[in-house]
Design a protein around this nucleic acid. Structure first.
Lengths: 96, 96
DNA sequence: ATAAACTAGTTTATTATATAAACTATATTT
DNA sequence: AAATATAGTTTATATAATAAACTAGTTTAT
């Protein structure tokens, strides 16, 4: 039987964002923008979903007069990512 | 930079179906139904998408008077799955 | 023999989701 | 003081996933 793949993580852009956040202390909006090549709107929407689930934390400030938004993964987010990877690996192992 | 995840495979039910088909010569509709626990309608729709992409082959016949539909993965489907797994692994490795 | 229930699906309609386009608010440059 | 740029957010549209309803027939019970 197949375990369910966390629908929040099983989406390309959200998975990319979480992947990025797993490897850094925190990331700025523009970093996410550059790394994912997604549109600003799409990033904004998907970030909101990850935040609503408490998978990430959002901090808003200013730098050189411009708004600066940074993101960090939470403990819950890390656990969810690890669980997601395990589930996926179970799928892939079945195929072999 | 992130590579794109084949949208046809990056969906739970279709991934489950392909995973199943990777490990068997062929599978019957009811086998897929039992293994995935999805609804018949959903299976039918997702199978059609995989078939349209030539990721799987569909054979229709009869057994004990009832319609019998069997599915098998194609070479193209196998390659797509392997590519998908590689891409995913690249994501996951980034997170570490 | 006929109605009720079951098999094995398919099609259609509804809901949810992803994405892009348009917008906001402020700052900088010409 | 316009025009352009920054850093986003909100809203509208397109796409996709899912469930419900339907099809075409078979088996079983009456």
């Amino acid at each position: 039987m197949f375990q369910e793949l966390d629908p929040l993580l099983h989406q390309q852009l959200r998975l990319q964002i979480i992947t990025l956040l797993m490897s850094v202390e925190s990331a700025e909006f523009n970093f996410v923008l550059a790394e994912t090549k997604a549109t600003r709107g799409n990033i904004s929407v998907q970030i909101k979903k990850l935040e609503a689930a408490n998978y990430i934390e959002v901090k808003k400030s200013f730098r050189d007069n411009y708004p600066l938004t940074t993101y960090a993964i939470t403990e819950k987010g890390k656990l969810a990512f690890e669980k997601y990877v395990e589930t996926l690996e179970a799928y892939i192992n079945k195929a072999r």
